[in-house]
């Protein structure tokens, strides 16, 4: 009888010990992994990763690259996850830009051929300084990555930016003569088309046009980059769901809330149109 009791308390001890050991090794202090991939991230960190991808997408405007990065997370429904996260951000208030970026990336998932206009960036240093700036930390570091490097996501595609064109002699501010919607189904992009003429009706090159987005950056471009269309012509590619404010010249009035107009073809199907703005310097 005594021997049976003795065995029982040992068995009880082992069972209790095993349960404690499993609790610690599997739940409380599980194995810590290093050099992991994004697909293994916990949900909160997946959300952070998605947010950064979406924000970078606004800057790079490189849809394939953003989609390649997003694919690293191996979401079952990438578009749904992005939309849900965007809605959560909007509901919680704040981070409006992040929510827009996520929504835009969700649209890119559904329409991989989508082209967006990159946000303006501010980089004070010229490119030539990069090598020196980068070398210093590289030399100081003693850590050498030993992992096999993963396949890189596609490199950024640099969208050519308009080069600076000297400003014409400043006169009276340009006035908006007419604003109209352009509905041409064959146009592949929705544009803000700006035509600028002087008081005599002659096209003016080099007129500065500023375009801004609520909660976004300001971009500047100039007329005269498409002389084959018109020397006083400039355009800007709009993004679905975005609104823009536009100013022509240094002291021109602000045209607000420009967004992609909805056009209809002969069969009643809707498609995105463009906007035409005609400006003239008053006589």
């Amino acid at each position: 009888m005594n021997e049976k009791r003795g065995s029982l308390h040992l068995l009880t001890g082992v069972v209790i010990g095993v349960l404690i050991g499993l609790l610690v090794s599997l739940v409380l202090l599980p194995v810590q992994y290093i050099d992991t991939e994004p697909r293994t991230l916990k949900e909160s960190d997946r959300a952070s990763y998605r947010e950064v991808i979406a924000r970078a997408f606004l800057v790079e405007a490189d849809t394939p690259r953003a989609l390649a990065r997003l694919a690293l997370l191996q979401d079952a429904n990438p578009s749904g996850a992005l939309v849900e996260q965007a809605q959560t951000l909007l509901v919680s208030g704040g981070k409006d830009l992040e929510a827009r970026a996520l929504a835009l990336l969700a649209a890119a998932v559904n329409q991989p051929s989508m082209v967006i206009t990159p946000l303006a960036v501010v980089l004070p240093s010229p490119i030539q300084n990069v090598t020196n700036t980068v070398t210093a930390p590289a030399l100081q570091s003693t850590n050498t990555p030993t992992e096999t490097l993963a396949t890189r996501t596609p490199a950024v595609t640099i969208t050519p930016r308009p080069t600076y064109t000297p400003q014409p002699t400043q006169g009276a501010p340009y006035e908006l003569l007419e604003q109209s919607n352009v509905c041409e189904p064959e146009m592949k992009q929705s544009l803000i088309q700006v035509y600028v003429v002087d008081a005599a009706g002659k096209p003016v090159e080099g007129v500065k046009i500023e375009i801004s987005q609520p909660n976004g950056g300001v971009e500047t471009f100039f007329t005269g980059l498409y002389p084959e269309i018109n020397p006083g012509y400039a355009d800007y590619t709009m993004t679905q769901g975005m609104t823009y404010n536009l100013r022509v010249g240094e002291a021109g009035g602000l045209v607000q809330n420009l967004s992609i107009p909805v056009c209809e073809d002969d069969e009643g199907n809707e498609y995105p149109g463009s906007i035409r703005l005609d400006y003239q310097q008053p006589k």
Binding site: T12, I16, G21
Partner: peptide, 16 residues
């Protein structure tokens, strides 16, 4: 009993 618990914990940790 204590030794049994320690043995059990060790086994649980090794497994996990």
């Amino acid at each position: 009993f204590i030794i049994a618990i320690v043995v059990g914990i060790s086994a649980g940790l090794i497994y996990g």
